[in-house]
Amino acid sequence: MTSTDASAEDTLDLHLPAELVASFGDAGHDPAGAGTALARADLLDHVGHWGPAGTSEGAFHLVPVDVGRDLPLVARWMNDPAVAAYWELTGPQSVTEEHVRAQLAGDGRSVPCLGMLDGVPMSYWEVYRADLDPLARYCPVRPHDTGVHVLIGEETHRGRGIGTVLIRTVADLILAGRPACTRVLAEPDVRNRPSVAAFLGAGFRSAGEVDLPDKRAALMIRERAARESR
Rank of each mutant, 00 (worst) to 15 (best):
D26E: 13
D26W: 08
D26M: 00
A27R: 02
A27F: 07
G28D: 15
G28F: 09
G28I: 07
D30Q: 01
D30H: 00
D30A: 02
D30K: 00
D30G: 01
D30S: 03
P31A: 13
P31R: 10
P31F: 04
A32E: 13
A32F: 06
A32H: 11
G33D: 09
G33T: 01
G33H: 08
A34P: 05
A34K: 00
G35K: 07
G35W: 11
G35S: 05
G35R: 02
G35Y: 14
G35F: 04
G35D: 09
G35P: 03
T36D: 12
T36Y: 14
T36I: 12
T36F: 13
A37Y: 08
A37M: 11
A37K: 02
A37I: 08
A39Y: 09
A39H: 02
A39K: 03
A39I: 10
A39N: 09
R40I: 15
R40Q: 15
R40K: 13
R40T: 14
A41D: 11
A41C: 09
A41Q: 15
D42M: 13
D42C: 06
D42E: 04
L43G: 06
L43C: 14
L43V: 07
L43T: 05
L43E: 13
L43I: 10
L44Y: 13
L44Q: 07
D45G: 13
D45R: 10
D45H: 10
D45Q: 07
D45N: 03
H46W: 08
H46Y: 02
V47T: 09
V47E: 09
V47N: 04
V47D: 15
V47Y: 11
G48W: 07
H49K: 02
H49V: 14
W50Y: 08
W50Q: 04
G51S: 08
G51F: 13
P52M: 14
A53L: 04
A53G: 05
G54R: 14
G54L: 07
G54C: 15
G54D: 09
G54A: 15
T55G: 11
T55L: 00
T55Q: 08
T55C: 02
S56D: 06
S56G: 13
S56P: 01
E57D: 10
E57A: 05
E57I: 14
E57M: 07
E57W: 07
E57P: 04
E57F: 11
G58Q: 02
G58P: 00
A59H: 11
A59L: 13
F60L: 14
F60A: 02
F60N: 03
H61G: 08
L62H: 15
L62G: 03
V63I: 15
V63C: 12
V63F: 00
P64S: 09
P64V: 02
P64F: 00
P64E: 11
V65A: 10
V65I: 08
V65G: 03
V65S: 03
D66V: 12
D66L: 07
D66F: 03
D66C: 04
V67S: 05
V67R: 04
G68R: 01
R69N: 07
R69A: 13
R69E: 15
D70L: 03
D70N: 06
L71C: 05
P72W: 02
P72D: 14
P72H: 12
L73T: 10
L73M: 09
L73F: 02
V74L: 04
V74I: 08
A75N: 01
A75Y: 05
A75L: 02
A75M: 00
R76A: 12
R76Y: 12
R76T: 14
R76M: 13
W77E: 12
W77Y: 10
M78S: 04
M78H: 10
M78T: 14
